[in-house]
């Protein structure tokens, strides 16, 4: 289990979300959902895909999403 910041592109399952931010839920990022990291660089937002939508997540927020 590790947060999104440390993951290479690939598909993972969300395990836990350590932030009270409702917007993650609203975009379908909930424990158990599949999440695909499209690109992640040393700087800038992390790009992921959930279902058929593409989402940009700030580094702070991405650090709060634990996946495996």
């Amino acid at each position: 289990m590790d947060n999104l910041l440390n993951k290479n592109p690939g598909t993972y399952t969300v395990v836990k979300i350590n932030t009270p931010c409702k917007k993650l839920y609203e975009l379908g990022i909930i424990p158990g959902s599949k999440i695909t990291v499209i690109s992640s660089n040393k700087r800038g937002p992390i790009l992921v895909r959930i279902g058929n939508s593409k989402i940009a997540i700030g580094r702070g927020m991405a650090g709060a999403i634990l996946v495996e």
Binding site: C21, K23, L24, L27, P45, L47, S53, K54, I55, A56, I57, G58, G60, M61
Partner: peptide, 9 residues
């Protein structure tokens, strides 16, 4: 805005 948003196609 919280820094998480959708990028439409």
């Amino acid at each position: 805005e919280e820094f998480i948003f959708e990028l439409p196609p």
